[in-house]
């Protein structure tokens, strides 16, 4: 599903060039539930950003689901990402002025993957899947952290993408909630989604099928 060949990423900073990723070779099969671990600054989030198309590699080849990311321009990659990648962020990143249901409907709105009349029903279905359907018409500020993260997961599933990327999804949650979130991820993996999760929480990440350790920009 995901193939990375000699992926490198270098950032230019006021302090000079910084190589965040160094010649990463990595293959991830469909349906794998992979945890990416490593110290702060090791390049975990950078790796995730490359896969999600949020950032572009300085060199190397990256193919996801048969699509070479380097061949897509600015607008194509946005459209591709909306349909193929679901993102879950550490700080949830729900839009504060939209209700829970509207946040989940937003990706469908952008990508047009669902007829307009069916979007609300789909959103409710997804919210039910993550056990927060009763919060559908509330604003994110009225929800707890765990609830917001569940909504974020529902939003990530809105366009039924094959790949889910999560960057420290439990970083702001208590341990019990973290376990619940990872359990949810396991269910999604069992449903055939390919999941990559950056995490600092080895206990919560127990259900993963594989762990990749990144150290100093390289796969350890």
């Amino acid at each position: 599903m995901i193939s990375m060949q000699r992926i490198s990423k270098t950032y230019e900073t006021p302090a000079g060039s910084f190589r965040a990723l160094k010649n990463i070779d990595l293959d991830i099969a469909t349906g794998e539930f992979v945890a990416i671990v490593g110290k702060s600054g090791s390049g975990k989030s950078t790796l995730l950003n490359m896969i999600g198309g949020i950032d572009r590699p300085s060199s190397g080849a990256l193919t996801i689901g048969g699509t070479s990311i380097a061949d897509l321009d600015h607008n194509e990659i946005a459209s591709w990402r909306g349909r193929n990648i679901g993102f879950v962020f550490q700080f949830f990143q729900l839009l504060p002025t939209l209700t829970v249901a509207e946040n989940v409907m937003l990706p469908m709105d952008f990508c047009g993957t669902m007829p307009r009349g069916q979007r609300r029903a789909r959103a409710m279905q997804l919210l039910d899947r993550v056990s927060v359907a009763e919060q559908a018409d509330k604003l994110p500020s009225a929800l707890s952290g765990g609830q917001q993260q569940r909504v974020a997961i529902a939003r990530a599933l809105a366009n039924d993408p094959p790949v889910i990327l999560a960057d420290e999804p439990t970083g702001n949650l208590d341990s019990e909630t973290s376990v619940a979130i990872f359990r949810l991820f396991s269910e999604l993996a069992a449903d055939g989604k390919t999941l990559l999760v950056v995490t600092h929480d080895p206990e919560a990440a127990a259900p993963v099928s594989r762990t990749i350790t990144i150290a100093d920009g390289c796969v350890a």
């Binding site: 946005a78 990402r81 993102f87 952008f110």
Partner: peptide, 16 residues
Amino acid sequence: LRQVAVMKTLGASTRT
């Protein structure tokens, strides 16, 4: 800006 970033991750194009 952060919300712009979120919308783009959700599939919004520059034009949108």
